[in-house]
Design a protein around this nucleic acid. Structure first.
Length: 460
RNA sequence: GGCGCGGUGGCAGAGUGGCUAUGCAGAGGCCUGCAAAGCCUUGUACGUCGGUUCGAUUCCGGCCCGCGCCUCCA
């Protein structure tokens, strides 16, 4: 099977051929840790988690690097506002990020480098750029990348340089030789975090950290670089400029992948509209797995419209999957490969909606299975299909018993006591009482289902 | 203005030059004490106007509508 990926650099879907099949490199821009991750931050994490899971099946070695940006002016601003020290903010926010992404079923990356631990590498890179005539230090503590020094700058975003400058929303700073030049290093005041450098005490610009860290862990040229569409310009364009010019290479990452934007109930997600959901808020009301599936129900390059109905639909899909798995809870699954259709869908530029359609088919065949051996085989297939998508790994009972932390739901023991009472009523043909118990529980969100042997329950 | 994306049945959402995914919702049936779940059957699609073609939802062009990016926002 050949993996095909859409490459922003060429604007085409291409067969993916790694530089080294035993050491495939994937770099994804990670969070700036100054606030809780919102659902828009979660989309690339979940999307590239699926890519990571798929590539681990296809190649013998995959290194997945996702950085943590822990030096940034937004962090400084947050610290000044709250009075909390920067390292406290970044440590707390990074921990929250890990918890949230774990709840979404995202595997940890192979390496998660922090910007502040790679200042020395950034300085080395900046010095190389100065030495090669691609950067200059005006003497006020800044170091800037000189965009006109790179003949083919702008290949990724395909923006006309002139238009970029005309459309710029920010005043051109006086220390720039060219309006398109961007900051590699900037001076820090005593209150701001800073590191000693050949240009005085300062801190790195935004783009240089990714060049430094991807170079260190994946090499000067590596396989795949991913992130949100909004990073294409200027962030990724400038990363490419820095890395290629510093290393004299024709290419930084060979494939650039970008996930689409996220809207909320049909509107652009923004703080001013008040439709800004953090993952943490959503996790209070929904299982993380349902949030993950919501993100995977739309192809990664399409705009994703986050709606309450979409989350509900994802939850129902998982209910259906776990219902099938619960029915074969006593069957030991055979170790199996995912259905080829699932892998084919994912190998075609991560077509997760199509893969999910085939997941439904795997559920259907499992539901229809007759013999124990067939059930074991089909259960194994369904679980394998879920695994490559990062779904269906929990115990069905745990799934059905989940309820929001704040919800006033009867406790499990009380429910089971009522089920016992109802069973006695049914035995005595007292169906009025049996139905009354079922109705009362239903009013509290508990659904009873009388199976062949026993009655099962779930929180709807 | 420049660059780019999209408009598919009640909803979500894939895909394809001819055989009309998938799930939910709807209708009928099997099963059930009745339900639920499951299974079976079933209806409604491809913004608009042209072009290419034996044939287009799928390719090409115009138009309409929606959305995004254009220096630090995933």
């Amino acid at each position: 099977m050949t993996l095909h990926l859409y490459n922003t650099l060429t604007r085409a879907k291409e067969a993916f051929v790694p530089l080294r099949p035993d050491a495939v490199g994937l770099y994804v821009c990670g969070p700036t840790v100054y606030d809780f991750a919102h659902i828009g931050n979660a989309r690339p994490v979940v999307v590239f988690d699926v890519l990571y899971r798929l590539m681990k099946r296809l190649f013998s070695g995959v290194t997945y690097v996702r950085n943590i940006t822990d030096v940034d002016d937004k962090i400084i601003a947050a610290s000044q506002k709250s009075g909390e020290p920067i390292d406290v903010i970044t440590a707390r926010t990074a921990a929250a990020f890990h918890d949230d992404m774990d709840a979404l079923g995202a595997l940890p990356p192979t390496i998660e480098p922090r910007a502040t631990a790679h200042i020395a590498q950034m300085i080395v890179l900046i010095e190389a750029l100065i030495a090669k005539g691609h950067a200059y230090a005006p003497g006020d503590g800044h170091v800037l990348f000189h965009v006109p020094s790179m003949a083919d700058y702008g290949q990724l975003s395909r923006l006309d340089r002139r238009e970029v400058i005309e459309g710029a929303r920010v005043e051109v700073a006086g220390y720039k030789k060219d309006p398109a030049d961007f900051v590699l290093w900037k001076p820090s005041t005593d209150e701001q975090p800073g590191w000693p450098s050949p240009w005085g005490r300062g801190r790195p610009g935004w783009h240089i950290e990714c060049s430094a860290m991807s170079g260190q862990y994946l090499g000067e040229t590596f396989d795949i670089h991913g992130g949100g569409q909004d990073l294409i310009f200027p962030h990724h364009e400038n990363e490419i400029a820095q890395s290629r010019c510093a290393h004299d290479t024709p290419m930084m990452a060979r494939v650039w992948m970008h996930n689409g934007y996220l809207m909320v109930e049909g509107e652009k997600m923004s703080k001013s509209l008040g439709n800004f959901f953090t993952v943490r808020q959503l996790l209070a009301d929904h299982p993380g797995e349902a949030l993950r599936l919501t993100l995977l129900q739309t192809h990664y390059r399409q705009p994703l419209n986050w709606t309450a109905d979409g989350v509900r639909q994802a939850k129902e899909t998982l209910d259906r999957c776990y219902t099938a798995l619960r029915a074969v809870a006593d069957v030991k699954a055979t170790v199996a490969e995912p259905p080829p259709a699932v892998l084919d869908a994912l190998a075609d530029d991560l077509n997760t909606p199509l893969a999910i359609a085939h997941l439904h088919e795997a559920v259907g065949t499992l539901n229809k299975a007759a013999g124990a051996e067939e059930k074991a085989a089909l259960k194994g297939r369904l679980l394998a299909a879920g695994d490559v998508l990062g779904l269906l790994s929990q115990d069905p009972e745990a799934w059905f018993k989940w309820c929001p932390a704040a919800a006033a739901s009867p406790d499990d023991a009380a429910i089971e006591a009522l089920i016992v009472e109802r069973r006695e009523a049914r035995k005595a043909k007292n169906f009025a009482r049996a139905d009354q118990i079922r109705d009362e529980l239903k009013a509290q969100g508990i659904l009873l289902e009388d199976g062949a042997g026993a009655t099962t329950w779930r929180r709807g």
